[in-house]
Design a protein around this nucleic acid. Sequence first.
DNA 1: CGTGATACTTGAGAACCTCAAGCAATGCGC
DNA 2: GCGCATTGCTTGAGGTTCTCAAGTATCACG
Lengths: 160, 160
Amino acid sequence: MLEMVKFYRPVGTVVVMTAAPRVDTAQLMELFSVSLGVFYGDFALAAASENLTASQAKALAVLRRGPAAMRGLAEVLACDASNVTGIIDRLEKRDLVRREAAASDRRVKTVVLTPEGERVADAVRAGMRTTLDGLERLDDGDRDRLYELLERVFVTRPAS
Amino acid sequence: MLEMVKFYRPVGTVVVMTAAPRVDTAQLMELFSVSLGVFYGDFALAAASENLTASQAKALAVLRRGPAAMRGLAEVLACDASNVTGIIDRLEKRDLVRREAAASDRRVKTVVLTPEGERVADAVRAGMRTTLDGLERLDDGDRDRLYELLERVFVTRPAS
DNA sequence: CGTGATACTTGAGAACCTCAAGCAATGCGC
DNA sequence: GCGCATTGCTTGAGGTTCTCAAGTATCACG
């Protein structure tokens, strides 16, 4: 349907890679689904081996980037704020996380990883053998390219 | 924190792509987390607008590829088989899905999308505006490259 | 002040998830 | 054929996740 423009991509002075586009958006969406499934399965398994549910591990992963308010967590986790209360309750009970009063606004509670929480978060990531092994199949240049492409799709702000 | 790779696009007939590696595995894992978070949020939102939970929509998405046994679904969804029973129950109650007896093995139940189920599954995918818009920022060649890279990481069987 | 918005918590009700236990059908060795 | 472990699915118990509506405390602004 949309398959008509054949074009050639210059890559160097000598080598010529022909590149008639073979992949349409639907196929790419499908592959994202599959990739997400694999990544998620890998993640859930690694989380379980640290006695964490997927949601708890996801919260830890977000907090690994730095402290966050409950509200902010809810946004990143794409769920209701009341939900986060319970998840953080359970993590706090295990001393993986601490609630601190925010200085600037006494309504806000800043959630911080404890050292043990950091350890566990790192262990989960290190346990994702399937994904890590998959990444090892790429060389440095491919990793750069993949990084750049994902960033362009998912984190670039749409030009306004 | 997410410091970027600058890279060079072909602007003429001959272009040299430099490739000093700037991205390590940890950064890439982090970007996967973020990307899949965005993808998942987008997916959950699109699912909700069709009155589906994320799990139900995920099941529909898998079935969109073709009929599957309960057991197979559980494997792809990375959860217990008993769990799938409930999810399919609810989808069947809404006529999005049908259980059929498998001819070869009477223990097996093959789950099939109804036409309405197909419609809803497609609607969810079409509703993922954030992801679709993101993909539009890539040209055909980049899409090919992204596809190839993801495939290599997540679907290629490790050489044995 | 007061009024409205914001950050978080609580509680109800549903869905999700795992585990253990159960049933029916299969397949394999004898 | 007969026994028997295995497999595919379901059920029920118990905990987690999720949303929604309601409630409290705090902030921001007129």
